[in-house]
Simulated scan of single mutants.
Amino acid sequence: MTARYQVTIVKYGTRQTVRSDVFLNHHLYGEPDGPIAMDYFFWIVRNADRTIVVDTGFSATGGANRRRTTLIEPAAAFDALGVDRSAGPPVVVTHAHYDHIGNLDLFRASPLTIAAAEYDFWTGPYADRTLLHHSVEDAEIEHLRQAEREGRLRTFTDEVELAPGVRVLRLGGHTPGQSIVTVPTSAGVVLLASDAVHYYEELARSMPFTQVANLIDMYAGFERIRAMPADHLVCGHDPDTLGRFTPAGGALAGLAATIGEGC
């Protein structure tokens, strides 16, 4: 019998911007510019046997450096969800941008899983180039290096099964090792797209995000996601995301939603 999990989506930050700031070469679509919001999420996958953390949000420093609005400190959100950080739950790093690895230091005992292409890029010779480096914090990349030195970093090439039924797949595009996660739940298969798809519109209209390492890989990633047998798509930054799923209550009311039955 396939393991079943519950997925929790946590919105911890937000910002207001314009469409030309999020869609690559927006002027080519012949549409007027306009306002658009961007929300920031991390995800928790769990059942009675295990808890898996998918990304860790931006740090206070990373958010402040980019004038992002913090709605709840990620540490407080993890605590509200009962995530025992000291127990070293496995952490998936979908990619190494500041808003996805900003709190790895909260998980100093955790094994980290990241695509080899992602780790190799951000510890390689081109990571300091301005158009790429502006999306990372050096101290947070160092957390990845530290995990590697401590033997806590697991890399994979194309795909890995992290736990029974939980698959991590590299698509590339947004970053060299941009990955997605698929999770079986009682409500069907959930695809955590992370930043392979920032907005639902991005996938529906094949409109790449402005930050892209390989445009062809990004388009190919859209096609792979469309072809995958998933029942629920969870985008990486769309403000519409929480409204598509079951709202959470308690301390995270208005900031979280769930898919699948509880543990």
Rank of each mutant, 00 (worst) to 15 (best):
V92M: 14
R170Y: 13
I141W: 02
F58K: 02
P247T: 00
C263I: 11
A139D: 09
V18W: 08
Y5E: 04
T8Y: 08
T61D: 07
G165N: 15
R85E: 00
I44V: 11
T70F: 02
F156I: 02
H134R: 13
V53H: 06
F156L: 05
I36H: 08
V212L: 10
G188T: 00
P184C: 15
G262P: 12
A187C: 06
R108L: 08
R224P: 05
G173L: 11
G236D: 02
W122A: 00
E159L: 05
P90R: 03
D84F: 13
G62I: 00
A115V: 12
G262W: 14
T113K: 13
T241G: 05
P125T: 00
E140I: 05
V160S: 07
V93Q: 15
C263N: 01
P229G: 06
A117K: 08
P32F: 15
R85K: 12
V168W: 02
N65T: 04
P239C: 04
I259Q: 04
I101H: 01
S194I: 03
D231R: 03
V168C: 07
V53N: 06
G63N: 00
T8P: 07
D120L: 11
S194P: 01
Y5M: 09
R85V: 03
F245E: 00
D99Y: 08
T61P: 00
V91E: 01
P239Q: 08
L203C: 01
V197I: 14
A253M: 00
N65A: 06
E261C: 14
A204M: 07
Y40P: 00
